[in-house]
């Protein structure tokens, strides 16, 4: 039982990492007033381009860097449509997701052909901290990006959004862009910046799966994690710490299902129930949070000076 719980906690942090990274990225975007449905595609492309770069150059670090740069680029593309052109955010986000998933599959076929086993590379290894301790050893044995996510990226997001001038600008363009404009600050510039940061984090989340956890790229590598991240942002009321908690809850359920499946337990219900459970929980959470959810006031609204 003790081993089970220790492994479950360890797996929860590992499984949550990509979701939390992407959800924090989406938090930046939505705080600035842009719902980025391109998230699923940006994660997918990030996972692939990171893998491809690492495979061809032999450097995992270069792979991660290229993935993040691709995310920034497509965050900016989202900005071109939603900030500069001011078109419907749902449709342009979905368009970017379809573009990037198509592009990824196209490039995958081009570079790796129609092989049946996914190509793999030696991935980043977990850090060994207190390896002899039976409880802390497995829990602390995580990838460095997991540490960076929970100890740096999440607190930093809170600090930036609530304690810096730049964060104030992000929150303001998401609440009241007219006032920001009147204060002589460029609304588009702040929104582009938030989308770029957001895109970079989303792609890093995707690359975590291919460069850390799997060391491989598969067609179903993201399989809806981006949509989960979107839900978690609402669940977390656009607050980085609460978004992180939402990510951990999702990761926990997912890890539990993986453990139970790995133990070969014969359950009276199909294991898909556990896979679907986080989505059901999120919908219920949305219903409960629905009344209190404080959507950024200018979310989905393009800003154009009259």
């Amino acid at each position: 039982m003790e081993v089970f719980i220790v492994n479950l906690i360890a797996a929860t942090f590992r499984v949550s990492t990509p979701i939390v990274l992407a959800a924090i990225g989406e938090t930046y975007s939505e705080r600035a007033g842009i719902l980025n449905l391109g998230i699923e595609g940006i994660m997918y492309f990030g996972a692939f381009v990171g893998f491809l770069t690492a495979d061809k150059s032999g450097s995992l670090w270069l792979g991660l860097l290229v993935a993040i740069l691709s995310g920034i680029l497509f965050g900016l593309l989202m900005g071109l449509f939603t900030v500069t052109l001011g078109v419907n955010q749902h449709v342009s986000g979905l368009g970017i997701t379809l573009l990037l998933s198509g592009l990824t599959l196209f490039a995958f076929r081009l570079f790796y052909g129609g092989r049946s086993t996914p190509p793999s590379i030696p991935s980043f290894q977990t850090l060994k901290i207190l390896p002899d301790n039976p409880i802390l050893g497995p829990i602390l044995s995580q990838y460095w990006l997991t540490y960076v996510t929970f100890l740096v990226i999440v607190p930093l997001a809170w600090w930036i959004l609530y304690r810096t001038n730049f964060g104030l600008k992000i929150r303001s363009v998401g609440e009241n862009p007219e006032a920001v404009d009147a204060a002589g600050i460029s609304v588009p510039a702040v929104r582009y910046a938030a989308l770029a940061i957001g895109g970079g984090l989303m792609a890093a989340g995707g690359a975590f799966l291919s460069l850390f956890q799997l060391g491989a790229f598969t067609h179903g590598i993201i399989s809806g994690r981006g949509w989960v991240a979107i839900a978690i942002v609402i669940f977390g009321n656009w607050h980085p710490i609460r978004v992180m908690l939402g990510g951990l809850i999702f990761g926990g359920t997912f890890a539990l299902q993986l453990r139970l499946q790995a133990m070969g337990l014969q359950l009276p219900i199909p294991y898909e129930t556990f896979l679907a459970l986080p989505y059901v929980v999120t919908i219920i959470a949305l219903v409960i949070a629905g009344r209190n959810a404080s959507y950024p006031a200018a979310l989905l609204k393009p800003y154009r000076r009259e």
Binding site: G224, W227, V228, I234, A276, Y279, L286, G290
Partner: peptide
């Protein structure tokens, strides 16, 4: 119903329902 009665954003719920259906 969630949209009409409780003002829950339909974009997110319909997306999540897609994932649930895939598992079903």
């Amino acid at each position: 119903l969630l949209k009409v009665r409780l003002a829950v954003d339909e974009v997110v719920t319909t997306l999540l329902m897609n994932s649930i259906m895939a598992y079903i």
